[in-house]
Simulated scan of single mutants.
Amino acid sequence: MSDFRNGYTTAPATADMSVDAGLRGFMLGVYNKVALGLLVSAALAWLTGSYPPVRDLMFATAVFPDGVERLTGFTLLGMIVAFSPLVILLGSNFLMKNPSPSAAGGLYWLIVALIGASMGTVVLVYTGASVIQTFLITAAAFGALSLFGYTTKKDLTGIGSFLIMGVIGLIIASVVNIFLQNTMMQMIISIAGVLIFAGLTAYDTQRLKMTYYALGGNQTAMSVATSYGALSLYINFINMFQFLLMLFGGRR
């Protein structure tokens, strides 16, 4: 996994859990960045999925007998855009040992832009109503899980380590199923994905809270942590949203 999960702080075992204006400001900065990232992703997904000159650069489509144009595959550019976030995250683990605030922010917005562009598939595969409904469900679940991670006194570190291993398993299973195209396996992957990223949302929120106390008011370090924390939560949200769409989304 990339540094954005476990490399931007060494959190203490305990922290002052009292209400703290600085902590609220720090967390608000993270959530604002996540919200803006989701808006940017939605705009890019609409552009790549709906605007023909851009869509045709990214995706292969065809008009089916029922008259609906649907996704049939990726172009070379589309495949590069779809897989580059994972490559960049893995690469950043080696190349960004001590990132500056601008480098951490640049990484965040680069990942947001690439994921948003690749999510034109959502526009091409699912109905608008199911996309909106699933987004609202994901947002409600994300908010509740993040609140739990923020308020719980239980240490989630052990659970988080287990869930991160689960992400690796998900990636492997998903790659295998690209070739197998097994419907039952895809359903199991989707259910597991929802549960894993739901747990990671609570874990990452608690870890961000510990990060704030560990940094001791260092503004430069907190700026870096804000970007990495937003990246963690953004990826959790996007994955929950996509897995829920696979389970319940209405296809075009």
Rank of each mutant, 00 (worst) to 15 (best):
S190Q: 07
N236I: 08
T201D: 11
L245G: 04
T134A: 10
I191L: 15
R5Q: 10
M17C: 06
L244N: 05
I115A: 03
L110V: 13
W46D: 02
G37S: 08
F64D: 12
G105T: 03
K33T: 15
L136S: 10
V112L: 04
L200S: 01
T134Q: 08
L44G: 02
G49Y: 03
G25R: 13
R207Q: 14
G91S: 02
I171D: 08
W109C: 04
S50Y: 07
Q186D: 15
L195Y: 03
I115C: 03
I235R: 03
Y51N: 11
L89V: 02
M27W: 08
I196M: 04
M210N: 08
I189N: 11
G229Y: 05
A11N: 09
S41K: 00
A35R: 01
I159W: 14
L86S: 09
M1G: 12
G128P: 01
T183W: 10
A62R: 14
T75Y: 07
A173Q: 01
Q219C: 05
T14G: 12
M17N: 12
R207F: 14
S2I: 02
K33L: 15
G37H: 04
P52W: 10
L156V: 10
M79K: 14
F83T: 07
F197G: 01
V81I: 12
P12Q: 12
A113M: 08
N236Y: 08
T211N: 04
V34K: 05
G29R: 07
V34Q: 05
V167M: 05
V63K: 13
S100P: 02
G37N: 03
S41T: 01
L200W: 01
Y150T: 08
R55T: 15
L114R: 00
T14W: 10
M240D: 01
F243P: 02
D20W: 06
M187T: 15
T121V: 14
T152S: 15
Y203D: 08
R5P: 00
D56Q: 14
S161D: 11
L38T: 00
D16P: 02
K153L: 11
S50W: 05
L163V: 03
F148I: 10
L245N: 05
I88T: 06
T10L: 09
G49M: 04
N218V: 09
G78V: 03
V176M: 14
L200T: 00
T72N: 06
M185T: 14
S84K: 00
S84Q: 01
V167F: 00
P52K: 12
Y234C: 07
A129K: 13
I188V: 15
N32Q: 14
S232L: 06
A45I: 00
V176R: 11
S223D: 06
V175Y: 06
L156M: 13
